[in-house]
């Protein structure tokens, strides 16, 4: 089993940014959007995320798996949410008078359950979709667009103690080795007649069946860890100060990028408290689509 990281240099504007500015701006935008439910603002948020996605020049082929995953998740979650309560985060649509399009009562174990579909729920669901897509697209491009060898120095540069940051680098270093070891163990056990494909027995038995595959890999890795620890101690790991040869430097374009993040953040604060545009509402034209007069 050969693992491959998704990252490769694509010569894009995003590539040329300091990874720290990428993280900072992404989180600024995320936090800016948390309190806001205004549907038009959410569409704007989604467009912002998509702009970043297009800047990354990722192809459909590379990312189709994650798109399917996100869309599947969103459909399930929004559907579930609509059926169960239809309410969202801060209970937005409770304030609105429901305009019922469909309703039915079920009797379950003596209790009556009345799911319905209202114009407000549909409107909320669509807003929610833009919001969830926006958030997912904002972050999911990270593995494709940030060089895995830069994580340690990036987080160290953002003030995380270097031991934690180095753990991250070391984890990336171990992944291909452990993936290979896992493949070897799978082969070893198959040589002893173990059939990976076969699921049999009850749930507990099925779960126990993976022990021969994971226990050897884990224990071997732990034993080898002693040598790695020694090797690191022998090369002075753990002094007060550590240099990272990977060089990170903020350049004009980074200040520009962070500037966008700050602007969005401040803009969101202004929308929220200055203009009071944070709340969810259903536009009149939307009611019109269903022939309903609010």
């Amino acid at each position: 089993m050969l693992v491959t990281w998704k990252y490769r240099p694509r010569g894009t504007f995003l590539d040329s940014l300091d990874p720290r500015s990428r993280w900072i701006t992404s989180f600024l935008i995320l936090f800016a959007m948390v309190p806001i439910w205004h549907p038009y603002v959410m569409v704007g948020y989604f467009c912002l995320s998509m702009t970043q996605f297009f800047l990354s020049r990722l192809t459909w082929q590379e990312t189709k798996r994650v798109w399917f995953f996100i869309i599947f998740l969103i459909v399930i979650v929004i559907g579930l949410n609509a059926i169960i309560t239809g309410r969202g985060g801060p209970g937005e649509i409770q304030r609105l008078e429901p305009h019922v399009l469909w309703e039915r009562s079920f009797n379950i174990l003596g209790a009556t359950w009345t799911p319905n579909i209202t114009v407000e729920k549909i409107g909320f669901g669509i807003t929610q979709m833009f919001r969830m897509m926006g958030t997912a697209v904002l972050f999911f491009i990270i593995p494709w667009t940030i060089d895995p060898s830069k994580y340690g120095v990036t987080f160290s540069g953002m003030g995380i103690p270097y031991r934690f940051a180095f753990s991250m680098d070391l984890a990336f270093r171990f992944v291909p080795t452990l993936a290979r070891d896992f493949a070897t163990t799978v082969d070893s056990q198959r040589a002893r007649g173990y059939e990976v494909e076969r699921l049999e027995g009850g749930l507990i038995t099925q779960i126990r069946r993976v022990a021969p595959l994971i226990v050897p890999v884990v224990m071997n890795a732990i034993v080898n860890g002693e040598d790695i620890t020694n090797a690191m101690d022998l090369r002075c790991f753990g002094q007060d100060k550590r240099t990272w040869i990977g060089k990170l430097q903020y350049r004009t374009r980074d200040y520009f990028w962070i500037g966008i993040g700050v602007a969005v953040f401040l803009g969101a604060l202004y929308l929220n408290w200055g203009l009071n545009l944070e709340n969810f509402f259903v536009p009149t034209w939307f009611y019109g689509l269903f022939g309903v007069v609010p």
Partner: peptide, 11 residues
């Protein structure tokens, strides 16, 4: 701890 955190994460 640095080493075992990394090994655990990679596993």
């Amino acid at each position: 701890q640095v080493v075992y955190a990394a090994i655990g994460a990679a596993l």
